[in-house]
Design a protein around this nucleic acid. Sequence first.
DNA 1: TTGCGCCACTAAACAGTGTTCAGTAAATTT
DNA 2: AAATTTACTGAACACTGTTTAGTGGCGCAA
Lengths: 203, 203
Amino acid sequence: MGILQRKEREKEEMRQLILDAAHDLFREKGYDGVNIRQIAEAIEYSPATIYLYYKDKNEIYYALQFMAAAAKRDHVAPAMSIEDPWARLTEFGRLYIDFGMQHPDWYDLLFLTRAPMEHIENQDCWVLGKATHAFFVDTVQACVDRRYFKSTDTEAIAYTLWCHAHGLVSLFVRDRMRMYPEERRKGLAERSFEMLVKMAGCL
Amino acid sequence: MGILQRKEREKEEMRQLILDAAHDLFREKGYDGVNIRQIAEAIEYSPATIYLYYKDKNEIYYALQFMAAAAKRDHVAPAMSIEDPWARLTEFGRLYIDFGMQHPDWYDLLFLTRAPMEHIENQDCWVLGKATHAFFVDTVQACVDRRYFKSTDTEAIAYTLWCHAHGLVSLFVRDRMRMYPEERRKGLAERSFEMLVKMAGCL
DNA sequence: TTGCGCCACTAAACAGTGTTCAGTAAATTT
DNA sequence: AAATTTACTGAACACTGTTTAGTGGCGCAA
């Protein structure tokens, strides 16, 4: 039954080929600028062929979103092995923001596009995101246990920190910092993060 | 020359008619769900007529965005007359978040759609936004002057507060709070805001 | 009043999307 | 070798935003 296996492998390779092409085009032209015909041309197949491997454009979208979630997890992974909860938390925050700044398109895909997780098809991405979030909350909990915060409302603390990091990145990614000159934006973001770290002790 | 005046008035009325129809459809179906033909049908004119009054769909978009900016300004206006800077700042924050929660579509239009302000056509909206932001920064400055904060970095303080409020609203608006059960999300947001207010004294 | 020109308006088309379908040729099975 | 299944495609469909070539009526000069 080697033929079936080969076919299965070829099918998977084709799915990956499509995804890689979509990914390249996406990074080059931004997400909205890519259409099915462009992907088809990139892999030298007809547009209709794409639909033999992905149900619709959304499925490609979801697959890319999963890639983004994995990339984010890998980006913040170094923080996970830090022993001290407080150092782990701050480094996690720093890396989270760093990821958003370095990969605005992926951050956008993960957190700024409209409700893409409502479809069951994208559960993989959602599971990954929940795992990362759980790790984050656990770290906050560890800090709470060691009395790094005044408050013991772990949930609210975690959410407040997340709000700040997400707000910071998304204002940057969606270009809502125009009142500050270009060259000062990153510096301002860094000062704000430092400020939050100091302030967090008062939470 | 009353005829010219009448024509001018009719032209303006038509522009408003289109805008109102677009606005209604937008609130009903969300922004992406509305197209030119639907707007045309709503006002009982042909699609081509729309283009006699607005250069393209973006111009309608910009006009709606301006309406959203005005609605936001009106929503937070009550805070502006509060004497005490600290009370003014907290009430301003509360109303800002309240606006986002009550009008997610408008908030989306203002702060979450991709770089809509890069076009000169939408300078009106931008001017309005900058004015509101300047008011916000002035209030923070007044608090700094009265030593409500430890830090004297007005810019960073203002930005940090904005990040939190914006992050809070946008996580809510773009439905990224799925790890919390529906009925607890608003409560969590409120606890987070209260926490920030307390924490702000440590900034 | 009459005829000319202008102006608001539109039907129909165009170009670009995502997506589907009938047909084809090759690979596989019988 | 014949039958069937598979992988693929050209051409179409339905739906976008937008443009164009008119058309009919209104206002104005004669």
